[in-house]
Design a protein around this nucleic acid. Sequence first.
DNA 1: GGTTATACATTCATCGTTGTATGTATGTAA
DNA 2: TTACATACATACAACGATGAATGTATAACC
Lengths: 214, 214
Amino acid sequence: MARRTKDEAEKTRSAIIDAAEKVFFAHGVTRSSLELVAKEAGVTRGAVYWHFKNKPALLHAMAQRIILPHEDMLEKLAAQMSQTPIDDLRSVCIHTLKTMAKDKRRRHVLTILFMRCEYIEEMFDIIKRQNASKNRIVSLAEKLFSRAKDLKMLAPFWTPRQAAVAMEALIIGLILGWLEQPKRTNLATVGASCVEAFFISLKAEPSSYVLSES
Amino acid sequence: MARRTKDEAEKTRSAIIDAAEKVFFAHGVTRSSLELVAKEAGVTRGAVYWHFKNKPALLHAMAQRIILPHEDMLEKLAAQMSQTPIDDLRSVCIHTLKTMAKDKRRRHVLTILFMRCEYIEEMFDIIKRQNASKNRIVSLAEKLFSRAKDLKMLAPFWTPRQAAVAMEALIIGLILGWLEQPKRTNLATVGASCVEAFFISLKAEPSSYVLSES
DNA sequence: GGTTATACATTCATCGTTGTATGTATGTAA
DNA sequence: TTACATACATACAACGATGAATGTATAACC
């Protein structure tokens, strides 16, 4: 076939990623041949190899398309020095879960990343990126909880670090459980209510705080 | 080679699983050939195919060897109708994390199951088993939290269901984070302290627990 | 003590996938 | 208009893995 215009090329590129999402989701990353991906996208392997160096690169591009909503919202939060850091964190978490529950693409891609691919050498940069993102999130949350502690808003038995680590772990655990059994644990209802309760428990109650100070 | 005695056969069987743990951990399940596993175990593929139908069956056997300590401890707990269900749950969780942190085999196998294999059709029975185990745990925890609620020991903003789901999600999230970056988040210290704080927040009567034994 | 089932090793046939090399027609810039 | 870069399609070479079939020597059993 003949050369396409730049616009069309970009379209085929994203069509290939779309196809990869479908195929990887269905068969797992390793067992999906690029031949299949190409066929699903309506092109040949030539096109795939033109746009992407190899399979890991394609997966990387796929992961890049869905930046976790989490992260940039937290960035903004941490910058603006709010007076209600815990409530802000809570709404970010809730928002994350709710959007996740609705966004089919995100769900599929996360399923692929969590349950349909194997993290080994060639995936190293993907791993590194994911870890960096996770660490960034925890560190930002820790900063916000630290601020909450200064404002006497964090329950005394939580350190900022513990709260941040636990928050992240809880969210990831909920999402993972939901991915494993989407019908069993509704993210938007059950998951969100867990997060609500968790955040209530993070907040200092005036009375208990006074008692624990004595 | 010649036929071995039953005892020796059992030894080669577990040697194969041992080898599979190493090889799967290093290269991921899909990219590990049974040839490599056999070589690592000091046998040939013939032996592997004799003991296991195929690769998923081998993986299944591998997963079977490490029953989560979680589960049977919870079974006993739920049966004995203790007067301190929350504290009991807490010590089970802490114990789980601490043993996990020490047991290298368990860590490797969990890493394989979480990050080095792809869950697709042929893994269906493994998935089913894992989900069943998880659901059983959540359901037992829910029962215990329900008992705690009857005893007025559960903080009012937690429902038993939420508490159970959150507990499981937290544990899984912590373990996953630890598997991803073993050096970053020490399970036995950071993880355990998160769980401690979480369980304090589950308990009713803020004043009593902050000051009392922990 | 002979037979049979066992516990493997060896061999074979087949198939899918990968990366690359090459072909080709067209958009685009000079 | 030419000349080159682009966006693919097609073709090729090579390997590795799988499952099954077959071989075989010994342990276990009667």
